[in-house]
Nucleic acid binder design. Structure first.
Lengths: 155, 155
DNA sequence: TATTGTTATACTCTATAACTATA
DNA sequence: TATAGTTATAGAGTATAACAATA
């Protein structure tokens, strides 16, 4: 590695050879997967992953079952069941579309929004408590890295 | 944020108030989860997640079904099925323990090892191709960040 | 009698195919 | 005739409870 381990001052010349680059990308990948796993694991998820995922999709606004099935990449019958489960828990509502009555409008309820917020808060608390223990210098590096990683994820 | 967005030189004073810290930890968490998701999604996994996970556990050495069930946090009957599926694909072998004949020794095969290696290479390639597009300065920041994040994950 | 692992049975989530209602 | 969604049925995965083999 061309970067000194443990130093808080990054070597801005960056990795000098392909081997370093391979190590870096692999370390990053593994670390991100571990953190994601820990975050998911620590949270006492009150809802199964597929139900929670749909709930999050509905936060910006109502969608039809067909749209949800496409976004979540599951079949239409699967989404019918998933929506039914969420309706049964009072987390979403189903309503007939007034214009095209073949369609159904699925919308998140106040209870659903609250559940998503609570889960987010729980996951955020896990991460925040760990980041808070780092030195200001380390936090600054992570602040930089967060923006770079966001670009990587968006590619 | 006290850190200039887009700058390649981190502000080593770090976030100055709790709100920044909350934002940072949340950004990091979301970004890590997105990258983990993308990596898993992009890889054309030839094996279901639970099968792959067991295979990885067996890489260091053979284990019994009971040990695997505890590590993977599933029931013993579930592990019986999982091991049977892996045996059916030729990825692991089952053998009676010569000492305690109640026990079964599950070991990864050459084919199993090759499959794990191929999947790893695929996942690494996805990440490496994206990291390679970054500037040397950005890569240097990520190299620093990878070490800090590893500490966070290990906590 | 305790332990290791398997078989029996049931529940959940998934899918494809067939069906209903609407356009 | 085409489209949106649901119901019918089947295939994996999970679990608990009952069982067989071994210590």
């Amino acid at each position: 590695m061309t970067v000194t381990p443990g130093s808080s001052v990054p070597d801005l010349s960056g990795p000098s050879d392909p081997s370093d680059l391979a190590h870096l990308s692999n370390d990053l990948r593994l670390t991100c997967m571990r953190i994601a796993r820990r975050v998911r694991f620590e949270a006492t998820d009150a809802l199964a992953p597929h139900l929670f995922s749909v709930l999050v999709r509905l936060e910006p606004g109502p969608l039809t079952p067909g749209e949800l099935a496409e976004i979540e990449r599951v079949s239409a019958p699967s989404m019918t069941r998933t929506v039914a489960a969420l309706v049964g828990r009072g987390l979403v509502t189903r309503a007939a579309d007034p214009v095209d009555r073949r369609q159904v409008i699925v919308a998140i309820t106040g209870e659903g929004t609250a559940l998503v917020a609570a889960t987010r808060a729980q996951r955020e608390a896990w991460m925040a408590s760990r980041v808070a223990r780092l030195t200001p210098g380390e936090q600054a590096v992570l602040a930089e890295a967060a923006q770079i990683l966001a670009k990587v994820a968006a590619q």
